[in-house]
Amino acid sequence: MAAEDLGPLLEVRHVHKSFPVSGSARVDVLKGIELTIEPGKLTMLRGRSGSGKTTLLNLLGGLDRPTEGEIVFRGSRIDEWSDKRLTVLRRKEIGFVFQSFALLPLLTAWENVELSLRMAGTPRAQWKERTDRCLELVGLAKRAHHRPFELSGGEQQRVAIAKAIAHRPALLLADEPTAELDTQMAARIIGAFRDIIGAEQIAICMTTHDSTLWEAADVVYQMADGRIVPA
């Protein structure tokens, strides 16, 4: 079945998020967000720093809960789930990529990816084939036995992406994954995302303020002052 026939993977319905600042005062960070993430699509949340992109991404991944509204993953309201159930969801269904690469410096690229499979509880018999596959998808098969300090920033980020998809998540969330990279390296990251989507029909949602990347997305949501606004 084609990805477009599966229906939404994740829906955000009238989501608000506020945080206490002092006494009874609160600051509203998200103000009535509505969006949909489809399987097999690259969705970008674009906007300036402070627009609410990272806060929204944390809600999508079950790392935080909305003050109001619904986060619906595969038809279930995950904003109502227990912390334990959300932990299982993240371990099995969601991958995360951040600006910092979070690689273990003494391990090779291959060993970093394999370690993520061990931690996810993937059967041992699948480790080698899946690790090789993930490094191939991000274009690093020939750099598999290099340690992080022997890799460029763009290569380290691609190893982090390979780690994040190793357990075959349905959704990959990436917070400004190209922010520390030059234009050429950023383009390679987006190319890796497109290859991963084509090969595995994963949904990818990333935040960015880089206008040179927007044309590569299937869907773009413009954020400003905690709202989705016309692009």
Rank of each mutant, 00 (worst) to 15 (best):
R158V: 06
F149E: 15
S100I: 04
Q156W: 05
D175S: 03
P105G: 02
L103D: 09
E180N: 15
T108P: 00
A164N: 01
H145A: 08
G95A: 01
A141C: 05
N112C: 14
A144I: 04
W110F: 15
Q156A: 10
R85P: 01
F149Q: 14
A141Q: 15
A109G: 04
A102G: 00
A102T: 03
R158Q: 03
L172E: 02
K92P: 03
N112P: 13
W110G: 00
T131A: 12
H167W: 00
T183N: 14
T183S: 15
R147P: 00
Q184G: 12
E93L: 02
A166V: 07
I165V: 13
A160H: 01
Q126K: 13
I161L: 09
F149R: 13
E176N: 13
A102P: 00
T122E: 11
D132G: 11
A170S: 12
F149K: 13
T87R: 12
M185L: 11
R133N: 08
V113P: 06
P169I: 00
A160N: 03
A102I: 01
I94P: 02
K163C: 14
D79S: 14
E176F: 02
I161W: 02
K128I: 06
G154Q: 12
V159W: 06
L172Y: 02
S100M: 07
A166R: 03
R147N: 01
L107W: 06
G95F: 02
S82K: 08
A186L: 09
V138E: 05
H145C: 03
V159T: 06
L115M: 14
F96M: 06
E111C: 08
L86P: 08
V113C: 04
R77E: 14
D79A: 11
A160I: 01
G153I: 04
A166F: 08
W81H: 09
S152W: 07
N112A: 13
A160E: 03
E114F: 01
P177S: 11
L89V: 14
T131L: 02
R168Q: 12
